[in-house]
């Protein structure tokens, strides 16, 4: 295991993040805070409690999850796409480093950033609404697993994309709508029965539901299923990444 190399990639990626603090931390925190002010404080005060949880608090896990999904994917995809775009990837590919170590460096850094952002949002939210966390261990477990899974997805997108447009397509056109419809702002129990069944096809429902359970012990689907879905998706992403490196897809001719 070439830990020095993993560390070099990890620190390089974290430094890149540090250089663009305004864009990488301030912007997502600001936009999420706006959601709190609009949906939590302004509109939320007129919305009845959901399963005994005030609406302002109810949306916190959803917003954290939405931020986690979009930031993990965009961060990780950019992290690997940019060296491909500039050509500096040659150095990574010709270094004495295994594909696992490459992924560990890039995905580890992207996941770390998302987890930090998620925690910042949590602290920010606690300034607006009272938050309690019923199962801190599971909260952290869902947070880390989801950050890892979607950073892996981002890594895959960054390798698949052959232009900056494609880099944006999946986060904007798939992840964003699915997380909006996945119960960020509501319980899917509020939907008509037909749409409840449709919502169950949305994988993000399971992520948000499990995460919300770790806070308030309320959930749309059972926690076991949520956890299994999260781990299942993680394994799927790992399998795709393994295939990418085995075949050299878009990396080696």
């Amino acid at each position: 295991m070439n830990l020095t190399a993993v560390r070099a990639i990890y620190l390089f990626e974290m430094a890149r993040w540090g250089r663009t603090l305004l864009q990488s931390i301030v912007a997502p925190v600001l936009s999420t805070s706006l959601y709190f002010i609009v949906f939590g404080a302004a509109i939320g005060s007129r919305v009845p409690d959901i399963d005994g949880v005030s609406y302002g608090a109810f949306i916190v896990p959803g917003l954290m999850m939405m931020l986690l999904l979009t930031e993990s994917t965009s961060n990780a995809s950019f992290g690997i796409y940019f060296p491909r775009f500039t050509g500096t990837i040659y150095e990574i590919l010709s270094a004495p480093i295994s594909s696992f170590e490459i992924v560990l460096g890039y995905v580890g850094a992207a996941a770390t950033k998302s987890v930090i952002l998620g925690l910042i949002i949590l602290v920010t939210a606690s300034l607006f609404v009272p938050i309690r966390i019923a199962h801190p261990f599971w909260m952290v477990a869902f947070l880390v697993l989801t950050a890892l899974t979607f950073s892996l997805l981002g890594f895959i997108i960054g390798i698949w994309a052959d232009g900056f447009e494609k880099l944006q397509v999946i986060p904007m056109l798939i992840i964003m709508p699915l997380s909006f419809l996945g119960g960020t702002f509501y319980s899917i129990g509020m939907l008509p029965p037909f749409w409840q069944n449709v919502a169950l096809l949305n994988p993000i429902v399971y992520l948000i539901s499990g995460f919300r359970w770790s806070f308030f012990e309320i959930s749309d689907v059972s926690v076991g299923i949520s956890f299994a879905m999260t781990v299942g998706f993680l394994i799927l992403c790992l399998a795709i990444v393994w295939w990418i490196f085995r075949t050299g897809y878009r990396l080696k001719p």
Binding site: N2, T4, A5, R7, I9, R16, T88, Y90, E91, S94
Partner: peptide, 30 residues
Amino acid sequence: IGLVPQELSTDMFETVWATVSFSRGIHGKS
């Protein structure tokens, strides 16, 4: 092996020191 590619592919926003130190790091050298 050290490789100098044909294309001028560089991490444009990095400093010379950082990019050279990075190269040393990914080759597993302290």
